[in-house]
Amino acid sequence: MREYFSNIWTSLATIAIGMKVTFKHMFVPAVTIQYPDVRPELPERERNRLYVNMDDCIGCDQCSRACPVSCIEIETVKGLPTDDIGKTSNGKKKALWVTKFNIDFAKCCYCQLCVFPCPTECIYMTDVYEFSEFERKSLVYDFVTLTPEEREQKKLNYQKYEAEKAAEKAAVKKPVTPPVTEVKPKIENPPSTETQGENKVS
């Protein structure tokens, strides 16, 4: 009998305590961030869409090899001795034409493993997180700055060069003028460049 009434009492009491808690929370300011109107401030180490600064990329393929899901595809062509491919920002001379640098963001798991081994720190994570697409293949980003024709050109050039070398024809002709046309990569809003540079394990 005592248990019977204590049951009633504890039920009513605990329900009242619970109701007090929820009632108090009616007047606590909400934690909701009204996303499209208000944007959360992202920490500086945010890991979202990758960006590759092709001016600095030497085409060493280290990032592609570090990637656990193989979503970076890089193809390079050796530059001719006469080509001026340019220099990286830390002064290394580039020796390869990067004719293909695709990152498939549908596969990418944003693990950042590709960022650390890069010798020139040219691949990094940005804070762009809104890049949904209707088709999967539009998530394959092409970072190469050369136009498709130029890429073909470079490959042909190198093949020709090889062939010529193989035939051991000493006559060198037709110096190829490097193209100067700037082709913008697919990224519309160039992301902020200050990323987690200071945390790099080189």
Partner: peptide
Amino acid sequence: KVSAHMQDRLGPM
């Protein structure tokens, strides 16, 4: 709204 505010949310806005 009641549920949202009890749970520290805003509910439909």
